[in-house]
Amino acid sequence: MTSSALTKPQVRDLLAKRLRFCIHGSCSFCKFDVAAPRKKARADFYRNYDSMKDFEEMRKAGIFQSAK
C-alpha cells in the first residue's frame, strides 16, 4: 500500500478570512437588496406627496381632535 501524505488544513487566520468574506457579502446584500430599493421607494413616494391634502383627509376622517 502506498500512503500519500494529506495536506494539512489551514487553521491560522481561517476565521479572519471567512469573516472578511462574510462581512463584504452581507454589506453588499444590505446595500443593493435592502437599502437601495427602500431609498427609491421613499423618493418615489415623496415626489408627488401633498402634505396638506393628506392632512385634510385625516381631519375629515376625525383623526385629530384639535383641528375641526
Rank of each mutant, 00 (worst) to 15 (best):
D44L: 11
A36F: 08
K40M: 09
F21G: 02
R47F: 02
H24S: 12
K31Q: 13
S28W: 06
M52F: 11
T2R: 10
D13Y: 06
K39A: 12
Y49R: 07
L6Y: 03
A35F: 12
N48D: 12
R18M: 09
C27N: 14
S28M: 13
A61Q: 08
P9W: 07
A43P: 03
F55E: 01
F21Q: 13
Y46W: 12
K39Y: 10
Y49L: 00
K68G: 05
A43I: 09
K31R: 14
L14F: 09
D13H: 04
A36V: 12
P9S: 05
D54M: 10
L6F: 01
V11D: 01
L19A: 06
R12I: 07
V34C: 10
R42N: 09
F32A: 05
R20S: 13
F32I: 05
K8D: 09
S66A: 13
S4K: 08
F64H: 05
P37W: 00
K17V: 00
E57S: 14
S51T: 10
F21I: 09
K53P: 01
D33K: 14
Q10W: 06
K17I: 01
R18F: 07
L19V: 05
Y46V: 08
Y49A: 01
N48W: 00
E56F: 07
A5G: 02
F55W: 10
C22A: 15
M52L: 14
R38Q: 07
Q65C: 12
S3W: 08
A16G: 14
K31Y: 12
K31I: 13
A35L: 15
F32V: 09
F64G: 05
K8A: 14
M52W: 10
D50V: 02
A36L: 13
S51D: 11
K40R: 15
Y46C: 00
N48H: 06
S3F: 13
M58R: 08
F21K: 14
R59H: 05
